[in-house]
Write a protein that binds this DNA or RNA. Structure first.
Lengths: 133, 133
DNA sequence: CTTGACCTTCCCCCAACTGGAACCTTGACA
DNA sequence: TGTCAAGGTTCCAGTTGGGGGAAGGTCAAG
Protein backbone atom coordinates (compact mmCIF):
# COMPACT_ATOMS: atom_id res chain seq x y z
CA UNK A 1 0.00 0.00 0.00
CA UNK A 2 2.92 2.32 0.58
CA UNK A 3 5.01 1.99 -2.57
CA UNK A 4 3.36 2.32 -5.94
CA UNK A 5 4.33 2.26 -9.58
CA UNK A 6 3.30 5.16 -11.77
CA UNK A 7 0.32 3.26 -13.14
CA UNK A 8 -1.01 2.48 -9.69
CA UNK A 9 -0.54 5.95 -8.31
CA UNK A 10 -2.07 7.37 -11.49
CA UNK A 11 -5.24 5.38 -10.89
CA UNK A 12 -5.47 6.30 -7.22
CA UNK A 13 -4.70 9.98 -7.72
CA UNK A 14 -6.91 10.02 -10.79
CA UNK A 15 -4.24 11.66 -12.94
CA UNK A 16 -2.73 10.51 -16.24
CA UNK A 17 0.72 8.94 -15.92
CA UNK A 18 1.94 11.52 -18.43
CA UNK A 19 0.90 14.30 -16.12
CA UNK A 20 2.70 12.72 -13.19
CA UNK A 21 5.91 12.41 -15.20
CA UNK A 22 5.49 16.04 -16.17
CA UNK A 23 5.06 17.06 -12.54
CA UNK A 24 8.31 15.28 -11.73
CA UNK A 25 9.96 17.00 -14.68
CA UNK A 26 9.10 20.43 -13.38
CA UNK A 27 10.04 19.53 -9.83
CA UNK A 28 6.65 19.31 -8.13
CA UNK A 29 7.30 15.79 -6.91
CA UNK A 30 10.45 13.68 -6.52
CA UNK A 31 9.62 10.00 -6.49
CA UNK A 32 12.36 7.47 -5.75
CA UNK A 33 13.71 5.09 -8.35
CA UNK A 34 13.87 1.33 -8.25
CA UNK A 35 16.96 -0.54 -9.43
CA UNK A 36 15.24 -1.14 -12.77
CA UNK A 37 14.71 2.59 -13.27
CA UNK A 38 11.00 2.51 -12.49
CA UNK A 39 9.63 5.35 -10.39
CA UNK A 40 8.66 4.42 -6.85
CA UNK A 41 5.89 6.50 -5.29
CA UNK A 42 5.60 6.71 -1.51
CA UNK A 43 2.50 7.73 0.40
CA UNK A 44 3.86 11.25 0.58
CA UNK A 45 4.15 11.39 -3.21
CA UNK A 46 0.60 10.11 -3.51
CA UNK A 47 -0.62 12.80 -1.11
CA UNK A 48 1.14 15.51 -3.05
CA UNK A 49 -0.40 14.25 -6.27
CA UNK A 50 -3.93 14.29 -4.90
CA UNK A 51 -3.24 17.75 -3.51
CA UNK A 52 -2.05 18.86 -6.95
CA UNK A 53 -5.04 17.28 -8.63
CA UNK A 54 -7.46 19.17 -6.44
CA UNK A 55 -5.61 22.46 -6.74
CA UNK A 56 -5.50 22.16 -10.53
CA UNK A 57 -9.18 21.28 -10.59
CA UNK A 58 -9.82 24.54 -8.80
CA UNK A 59 -7.96 26.31 -11.58
CA UNK A 60 -4.74 27.22 -9.76
CA UNK A 61 -1.78 27.62 -12.09
CA UNK A 62 1.15 25.25 -11.79
CA UNK A 63 3.19 28.00 -10.14
CA UNK A 64 0.44 28.63 -7.61
CA UNK A 65 0.35 24.90 -6.99
CA UNK A 66 4.08 24.92 -6.36
CA UNK A 67 3.67 27.66 -3.79
CA UNK A 68 0.65 26.04 -2.18
CA UNK A 69 2.48 22.73 -1.95
CA UNK A 70 5.42 24.44 -0.27
CA UNK A 71 3.07 26.06 2.21
CA UNK A 72 1.36 22.73 2.75
CA UNK A 73 4.69 21.19 3.66
CA UNK A 74 5.70 24.09 5.88
CA UNK A 75 4.41 23.58 9.40
CA UNK A 76 5.23 27.14 10.34
CA UNK A 77 3.34 28.76 7.45
CA UNK A 78 0.96 31.64 8.01
CA UNK A 79 -2.56 30.89 6.83
CA UNK A 80 -2.63 34.48 5.57
CA UNK A 81 -0.19 33.50 2.82
CA UNK A 82 -2.48 30.72 1.65
CA UNK A 83 -5.54 32.89 1.84
CA UNK A 84 -3.87 35.64 -0.20
CA UNK A 85 -3.23 33.20 -3.05
CA UNK A 86 -6.78 31.93 -2.87
CA UNK A 87 -8.25 35.43 -2.88
CA UNK A 88 -6.14 36.47 -5.84
CA UNK A 89 -7.30 33.40 -7.71
CA UNK A 90 -10.91 34.10 -6.79
CA UNK A 91 -10.56 37.57 -8.24
CA UNK A 92 -9.18 36.12 -11.47
CA UNK A 93 -12.03 33.64 -11.66
CA UNK A 94 -14.52 36.45 -11.18
CA UNK A 95 -12.86 38.44 -13.97
CA UNK A 96 -13.05 35.48 -16.32
CA UNK A 97 -16.69 34.90 -15.49
CA UNK A 98 -17.44 38.55 -16.15
CA UNK A 99 -15.64 38.41 -19.50
CA UNK A 100 -17.47 35.28 -20.53
CA UNK A 101 -20.80 36.72 -19.51
CA UNK A 102 -20.15 39.81 -21.60
CA UNK A 103 -19.26 37.66 -24.60
CA UNK A 104 -22.33 35.56 -24.02
CA UNK A 105 -24.60 38.58 -23.80
CA UNK A 106 -23.28 40.12 -27.02
CA UNK A 107 -23.30 36.92 -28.98
CA UNK A 108 -26.66 35.64 -27.82
CA UNK A 109 -28.07 39.03 -28.68
CA UNK A 110 -26.75 38.78 -32.23
CA UNK A 111 -27.76 35.17 -32.50
CA UNK A 112 -31.34 35.86 -31.49
CA UNK A 113 -31.65 38.37 -34.29
CA UNK A 114 -30.50 35.82 -36.86
CA UNK A 115 -33.33 33.77 -38.24
CA UNK A 116 -30.96 30.95 -39.20
CA UNK A 117 -32.49 29.82 -42.44
CA UNK A 118 -31.26 29.37 -46.01
CA UNK A 119 -31.13 33.09 -46.78
CA UNK A 120 -27.84 34.97 -46.62
CA UNK A 121 -28.99 37.90 -44.45
CA UNK A 122 -27.23 37.48 -41.14
CA UNK A 123 -27.16 39.94 -38.24
CA UNK A 124 -24.33 37.94 -36.65
CA UNK A 125 -22.01 38.63 -39.58
CA UNK A 126 -23.22 42.19 -39.70
CA UNK A 127 -22.38 42.63 -36.05
CA UNK A 128 -18.93 41.16 -36.54
CA UNK A 129 -18.27 43.35 -39.53
CA UNK A 130 -19.06 46.41 -37.45
CA UNK A 131 -22.28 47.54 -39.04
CA UNK A 132 -24.11 49.57 -36.43
CA UNK A 133 -27.37 48.37 -37.88
CA UNK B 1 -6.94 56.11 -46.71
CA UNK B 2 -7.06 53.02 -48.87
CA UNK B 3 -3.55 51.58 -48.67
CA UNK B 4 -1.91 51.18 -45.29
CA UNK B 5 1.31 49.86 -43.85
CA UNK B 6 1.16 47.28 -41.12
CA UNK B 7 1.67 49.87 -38.40
CA UNK B 8 -1.17 52.01 -39.65
CA UNK B 9 -3.61 49.17 -40.10
CA UNK B 10 -2.60 47.83 -36.69
CA UNK B 11 -3.61 51.10 -35.07
CA UNK B 12 -6.91 51.32 -36.93
CA UNK B 13 -7.88 47.70 -36.42
CA UNK B 14 -6.61 47.87 -32.84
CA UNK B 15 -4.53 44.75 -33.24
CA UNK B 16 -0.79 44.22 -32.64
CA UNK B 17 1.30 44.13 -35.82
CA UNK B 18 2.62 40.77 -34.67
CA UNK B 19 -0.89 39.38 -34.65
CA UNK B 20 -1.55 40.69 -38.14
CA UNK B 21 1.60 39.03 -39.46
CA UNK B 22 0.48 35.86 -37.76
CA UNK B 23 -2.93 36.07 -39.41
CA UNK B 24 -1.22 36.37 -42.77
CA UNK B 25 0.99 33.40 -41.90
CA UNK B 26 -1.98 31.16 -41.26
CA UNK B 27 -3.79 32.43 -44.33
CA UNK B 28 -6.57 34.53 -42.82
CA UNK B 29 -5.56 37.58 -44.81
CA UNK B 30 -3.43 38.10 -47.91
CA UNK B 31 -2.12 41.65 -48.10
CA UNK B 32 -0.25 42.80 -51.17
CA UNK B 33 3.47 43.56 -51.18
CA UNK B 34 5.21 46.75 -52.15
CA UNK B 35 8.40 46.70 -54.22
CA UNK B 36 10.40 47.10 -51.01
CA UNK B 37 8.81 44.00 -49.48
CA UNK B 38 6.53 45.94 -47.13
CA UNK B 39 2.99 44.64 -46.73
CA UNK B 40 0.28 46.77 -48.35
CA UNK B 41 -3.16 46.60 -46.71
CA UNK B 42 -6.23 47.52 -48.74
CA UNK B 43 -9.61 48.47 -47.31
CA UNK B 44 -10.73 44.89 -47.70
CA UNK B 45 -7.80 43.70 -45.59
CA UNK B 46 -8.66 46.29 -42.98
CA UNK B 47 -12.27 45.12 -42.90
CA UNK B 48 -11.24 41.52 -42.48
CA UNK B 49 -8.95 42.48 -39.64
CA UNK B 50 -11.66 44.34 -37.75
CA UNK B 51 -13.96 41.41 -38.38
CA UNK B 52 -11.33 39.06 -36.96
CA UNK B 53 -10.72 41.33 -34.00
CA UNK B 54 -14.38 41.33 -33.08
CA UNK B 55 -14.79 37.60 -33.59
CA UNK B 56 -11.72 36.86 -31.46
CA UNK B 57 -12.99 39.26 -28.79
CA UNK B 58 -16.15 37.17 -28.65
CA UNK B 59 -13.99 34.13 -27.99
CA UNK B 60 -14.28 32.37 -31.34
CA UNK B 61 -11.31 30.13 -32.13
CA UNK B 62 -9.11 30.95 -35.09
CA UNK B 63 -10.65 28.08 -37.03
CA UNK B 64 -14.14 29.37 -36.31
CA UNK B 65 -12.93 32.79 -37.44
CA UNK B 66 -11.68 31.28 -40.67
CA UNK B 67 -15.07 29.73 -41.30
CA UNK B 68 -16.96 32.87 -40.32
CA UNK B 69 -14.77 34.96 -42.60
CA UNK B 70 -15.45 32.60 -45.49
CA UNK B 71 -19.18 32.87 -44.83
CA UNK B 72 -18.85 36.62 -44.58
CA UNK B 73 -17.29 36.70 -48.03
CA UNK B 74 -19.81 34.31 -49.49
CA UNK B 75 -22.85 36.18 -50.74
CA UNK B 76 -24.81 32.98 -51.14
CA UNK B 77 -24.25 31.72 -47.60
CA UNK B 78 -27.10 30.42 -45.48
CA UNK B 79 -27.51 32.33 -42.25
CA UNK B 80 -28.22 28.96 -40.64
CA UNK B 81 -24.55 28.03 -41.03
CA UNK B 82 -23.47 31.16 -39.20
CA UNK B 83 -26.04 30.69 -36.49
CA UNK B 84 -24.96 27.09 -35.91
CA UNK B 85 -21.40 28.20 -35.21
CA UNK B 86 -22.62 30.92 -32.90
CA UNK B 87 -24.89 28.57 -30.99
CA UNK B 88 -22.14 26.00 -30.55
CA UNK B 89 -19.86 28.70 -29.23
CA UNK B 90 -22.57 29.96 -26.88
CA UNK B 91 -22.89 26.47 -25.45
CA UNK B 92 -19.14 26.31 -24.87
CA UNK B 93 -19.19 29.68 -23.15
CA UNK B 94 -22.00 28.50 -20.91
CA UNK B 95 -20.02 25.38 -20.00
CA UNK B 96 -16.99 27.46 -19.11
CA UNK B 97 -19.04 29.79 -16.97
CA UNK B 98 -20.55 26.84 -15.14
CA UNK B 99 -17.10 25.36 -14.51
CA UNK B 100 -15.75 28.64 -13.23
CA UNK B 101 -18.74 29.16 -10.99
CA UNK B 102 -18.23 25.73 -9.46
CA UNK B 103 -14.56 26.48 -8.83
CA UNK B 104 -15.50 29.81 -7.36
CA UNK B 105 -18.09 28.30 -5.05
CA UNK B 106 -15.72 25.65 -3.72
CA UNK B 107 -12.79 27.97 -3.29
CA UNK B 108 -14.67 30.86 -1.75
CA UNK B 109 -16.18 28.39 0.67
CA UNK B 110 -12.75 27.22 1.76
CA UNK B 111 -11.39 30.72 1.81
CA UNK B 112 -14.13 31.98 4.05
CA UNK B 113 -13.27 29.35 6.63
CA UNK B 114 -9.63 30.44 6.68
CA UNK B 115 -8.98 33.19 9.17
CA UNK B 116 -5.90 34.33 7.28
CA UNK B 117 -3.63 35.29 10.12
CA UNK B 118 -0.11 34.33 11.23
CA UNK B 119 -1.13 30.90 12.50
CA UNK B 120 -0.55 27.78 10.38
CA UNK B 121 -4.05 26.29 10.66
CA UNK B 122 -5.58 26.57 7.23
CA UNK B 123 -8.87 25.08 6.02
CA UNK B 124 -7.85 25.85 2.43
CA UNK B 125 -4.84 23.54 2.60
CA UNK B 126 -6.90 21.00 4.47
CA UNK B 127 -9.48 21.08 1.73
CA UNK B 128 -6.84 20.65 -0.94
CA UNK B 129 -5.22 17.77 0.91
CA UNK B 130 -8.55 15.97 1.03
CA UNK B 131 -9.29 16.11 4.69
CA UNK B 132 -13.06 15.78 5.01
CA UNK B 133 -12.90 17.93 8.09
C1' DC C 1 10.36 -18.78 -24.71
C1' DT C 2 7.21 -15.81 -26.01
C1' DT C 3 3.51 -12.73 -25.27
C1' DG C 4 1.43 -8.73 -23.42
C1' DA C 5 1.29 -5.30 -20.12
C1' DC C 6 3.90 -2.41 -17.94
C1' DC C 7 7.75 0.94 -17.61
C1' DT C 8 11.55 4.23 -19.55
C1' DT C 9 13.24 8.41 -22.37
C1' DC C 10 12.78 11.34 -26.24
C1' DC C 11 10.89 14.47 -29.28
C1' DC C 12 7.22 16.74 -31.61
C1' DC C 13 2.45 18.77 -31.33
C1' DC C 14 -1.60 21.86 -29.72
C1' DA C 15 -3.62 27.58 -29.48
C1' DA C 16 -2.71 31.96 -30.36
C1' DC C 17 0.17 34.54 -30.07
C1' DT C 18 4.63 37.37 -27.93
C1' DG C 19 9.53 38.65 -27.57
C1' DG C 20 13.75 39.28 -29.47
C1' DA C 21 17.67 39.06 -32.78
C1' DA C 22 19.51 40.36 -37.10
C1' DC C 23 18.88 42.95 -40.90
C1' DC C 24 16.70 46.38 -44.55
C1' DT C 25 14.22 50.86 -45.92
C1' DT C 26 12.75 55.42 -45.49
C1' DG C 27 12.66 60.21 -44.26
C1' DA C 28 14.63 63.96 -41.63
C1' DC C 29 18.35 66.63 -40.13
C1' DA C 30 23.24 68.39 -39.81
C1' DT D 1 26.65 63.08 -47.96
C1' DG D 2 26.54 60.83 -43.42
C1' DT D 3 23.78 59.24 -39.98
C1' DC D 4 20.12 58.38 -36.93
C1' DA D 5 15.53 56.96 -35.46
C1' DA D 6 11.49 54.89 -36.64
C1' DG D 7 9.50 52.10 -39.29
C1' DG D 8 9.56 47.60 -41.94
C1' DT D 9 11.26 42.35 -42.90
C1' DT D 10 12.28 37.24 -41.58
C1' DC D 11 13.12 33.64 -38.45
C1' DC D 12 13.55 31.26 -34.08
C1' DA D 13 12.27 30.40 -29.43
C1' DG D 14 9.16 30.62 -25.58
C1' DT D 15 4.64 30.61 -23.28
C1' DT D 16 0.65 26.76 -20.46
C1' DG D 17 -0.15 22.24 -19.26
C1' DG D 18 0.25 18.69 -20.83
C1' DG D 19 -0.92 14.70 -25.11
C1' DG D 20 0.62 11.38 -28.82
C1' DG D 21 3.52 8.21 -30.24
C1' DA D 22 8.08 5.95 -31.32
C1' DA D 23 11.82 2.98 -29.73
C1' DG D 24 13.21 0.25 -26.40
C1' DG D 25 13.79 -2.09 -21.41
C1' DT D 26 11.38 -5.17 -17.74
C1' DC D 27 8.50 -8.44 -15.69
C1' DA D 28 5.04 -12.10 -14.67
C1' DA D 29 2.25 -15.67 -16.74
C1' DG D 30 1.51 -19.52 -19.59
Amino acid sequence: MTNLTIGEVAKRANLPAKTIRYYEDIGLITPLRDSNGYRVFRESDFHKLTFLGRARALGFTIEDCRTLLALYEDDSRASADVKAIAQKHLTEIEAKITDLQAMHATLSDLSQKCCGDARPDCPILEGLSGQTN
